Amino acid sequence: MSAIQSTDAQREFPYSRRDFERVKSLLFKQAGINLADSKDAMVYSRLARRLRTLNIHSFKEYLAYVGSCKDEMEHFINALTTNLTAFFREPHHFEALANYLRKRSQTKRIWCAASSTGEEPYSIAMTVASVFGTFTPNVQILATDIDSKVLQKAREGVYAQNSISQLSHDYKTQFFYKGKGAQTGRVRVVDELRKMVQFETLNLMSANWCLEAPIDVIFCRNVMIYFDRPTQRKILARMVRLMHSDGMYVAGHSENFTMYPELVAPMGKTIYRPVV
């Protein structure tokens, strides 16, 4: 089997089309993620780090190891999941959340289904704290992700100072500590805000999500684009079943669920309500 794009001679490890197809198949089976054929170089780059760490000399050998080692499967998934996020990314969603909370002060549960490194759930928490005027509202914020490594960063709540440059002065001073000395150029989410968010590992393809219902608001942004259409519908249907009848589902800017009118109905820009 020839190496992908005939670049094997320049690569540190043997890497064939068959290896890439096996990676695609395994990632889809474990995480429901559909890798495009154009991602072959990305797969090599990210998994080559694991081969070096484990002192494994080929992708064929590594894939055999992944299949036999549960702990390595976690590293495999972590390496191949993409985590692109920012504080208050797509700000209209947080304006919609604030309006929703003002109208439904009895809101109890918010689920951020793709936490990544924490910017999104902390943006949710800042919105909740601002609306209710307290760090201890009667609102549970659950943030989950399949990648355990990014969740650890999220729990720590430490970020580059320029990551909050677009926030207002009040938000910067109210919600972040400014690093000093060795931490100059970094900020940390204040303890009170970090306590508002519960971070947990969760694979959306798992049979049991262990989530308490009903959930009032679900943020699941720019995740469904990695799933094929049947998987999208399956996950969306499971989420809708967990939601309050007056709930709000927030999707990503590249996602459109108008093809599922039996599940959700539009209520704003990439925002939906469950159909019950």
Rank of each mutant, 00 (worst) to 15 (best):
I164H: 14
K180S: 06
T81R: 10
T136S: 06
G133P: 02
L142E: 12
N83P: 15
N162V: 10
S115M: 13
H92V: 06
S163H: 07
K153A: 07
G133V: 04
Y100H: 09
E90N: 13
F132N: 05
L80K: 00
F176L: 00
Q174L: 04
Q166P: 15
K108L: 05
Y100N: 13
T127L: 06
S116M: 00
N162F: 14
S123M: 12
L151Y: 01
G181R: 05
I124R: 11
T81H: 04
S148R: 01
T107G: 10
Q140P: 01
T144W: 12
M126A: 01
A143M: 06
H93D: 13
S168Y: 15
S105C: 00
N78H: 03
Q140D: 05
L101H: 08
R109W: 02
N83I: 04
F88W: 14
D147M: 04
V131N: 06
Y100C: 14
A114I: 02
G181Y: 08
I110F: 09
E120A: 07
T81F: 07
F176H: 01
L167H: 12
L101R: 06
I77R: 00
R109N: 07
V139T: 04
F87P: 07
M126Y: 03
K108C: 01
T136L: 05
L151F: 00
S148Y: 00
A125H: 05
V150R: 10
I164S: 09
R102L: 11
Q174H: 03
P91I: 14
H92F: 10
T81G: 13
E95T: 15
Q174Y: 01
K178M: 04
V139I: 08
N78Q: 09
S168Q: 07
A125T: 09
F176M: 01
V131W: 09
H169D: 14
T144F: 05
I110R: 06
D145T: 04
L84W: 02
N138R: 08
Y177G: 03
G179R: 11
P121T: 13
T136I: 03
E120K: 12
I141D: 03
L84Q: 04
H92N: 05
H93R: 11
I164C: 09
F94A: 09
S123N: 06
V131L: 07
D170E: 14
Q166V: 10
P137L: 10
K172Q: 09
N83D: 05
K172E: 14
E156W: 01
H93I: 10
H169T: 12
A182Q: 12
T127S: 03
K149S: 04
V150E: 13
C112F: 11
S165L: 14
I77N: 00
E120H: 15
E90P: 12
K180V: 06
S168C: 07
